[in-house]
């Protein structure tokens, strides 16, 4: 089996086993209602994690994701409630602002040769600070589009609801999978993660790819912000605090190598669902503190980092070659 697939298989197996164990304890967890809520409650995290997966596969990191989500919720609220713009127009503006923000960060990373960690850390402070300057108070959003969207869903057999924001997340994952595995851009992202020098010598447009990767991540963070504002019907500068770290955790648990070059968007989906599963379990249990989510995620992260070390540092097997005679 392909080495890179092993962490993904392990994640999937752990998710299946954990879900099975939870269902044995609380049979009610096996329902489309719970699954539908998984998707809805973690939609913003999942969307941001798709962008983060691209960044990490390319060998970088994006710490600005949570702050961009927070900024976008505030910007949306300001545009809709204070300036009276139609939400769709506000969404478009928010996405463009986020995209431009990501492009600038990508350009700084490439042209100034500054590590992505530092650049996106600066981006994080800028976005969070900018959001607070726009409004330090929470702004409630009241608009008929918001009401319509939050009321629309597809009824699943068994009474579960596939909400609009849940569907948005699923679409983003499908888009991410195609982009990563079926396009030239995707192969360039993996190439950068493998070796930037080799990629450059092989003709990969390094500058353009780097800028596009961070643009993509910030745009998806912006979309996550829109979804978050739909989810909460509000804009608040301190919303989605630390979501970048949850996203990184989901990406790593999903089998993407933190040093870049290997990973799957689909794995990130399972990473997000695993976090949702832990949260739901805690809700069902009722007696556990919600901080147990963090402890479980921390334990899983350690496990997966260990697993990746074992899989990738073990001398890679040399295949027997069949020379044509």
């Amino acid at each position: 089996m392909n080495r890179a697939l092993r962490p993904l298989v392990a994640t999937t197996a752990i998710f299946a086993l954990a879900y099975l164990a939870a269902v044995i304890q609380f049979p009610a967890m096996l329902s489309t209602r719970v699954l539908g809520n998984f998707l809805t409650d973690n939609a913003f995290l999942g969307i941001a994690a798709v962008g983060m997966t691209f960044v990490i596969i390319s060998g970088g990191i994006d710490l600005s994701v949570g702050a961009v989500i927070g900024f976008t919720t505030v910007l949306n609220a300001v545009l809709i409630m204070w300036l009276g713009l139609h939400p769709l127009l506000a969404f478009a503006i928010s996405l463009m602002v986020a995209a431009a923000f990501g492009a600038v960060m990508g350009a700084a990373i490439h042209y100034l040769k500054v590590p992505s960690f530092i650049v996106t850390l600066a981006g994080m402070f800028l976005a969070r600070g900018g959001a607070s300057v726009l409004s330090s108070d929470s702004i409630g959003i009241k608009h008929e589009l918001y009401t319509t969207i939050s009321k629309s869903y597809i009824l699943l057999p068994g009474g579960g609801r596939l909400t609009v924001i849940g569907m948005i997340m699923l679409l983003v994952f499908v888009f991410g999978i195609i982009l990563a595995h079926r396009t030239r851009f995707g192969s360039y992202v993996y190439a950068l993660g493998g070796s930037e020098v080799s990629a450059g010598l092989m003709g990969v447009p390094v500058a353009r790819t780097t800028i596009l990767i961070y643009t993509l991540s910030a745009t998806l963070a912006g979309l996550a912000g829109i979804v978050f504002s739909l989810y909460t019907s509000a804009g608040y500068s301190l919303s989605a605090l630390g979501v970048e770290l949850d996203a990184i955790a989901a990406v790593v648990i999903g089998g993407t190598l933190l040093t870049g070059g290997y990973g799957f968007i689909a794995g990130t989906f399972i990473g997000v669902m695993l976090q949702g599963l832990v949260q739901t379990y805690i809700v069902f249990d009722g007696s556990l503190s919600s901080w147990w989510t963090k402890i479980v995620i921390g334990g899983l992260l350690f496990l997966f980092i260990l697993l990746q070390r074992l899989v990738f540092s073990a001398a890679s097997p040399r295949r027997k070659v069949f020379w044509k005679t």
């Binding site: 030239r184 192969s187 190439a191």
Partner: peptide, 27 residues
Amino acid sequence: VNLLPNRSVAENLFLGHQPTRFGIVQR
């Protein structure tokens, strides 16, 4: 070797020149 050990042999041969159809690489 200035190639990409993390990608497939085929991709290493054609990276940057992959034939595509509607933007999708024809693997």
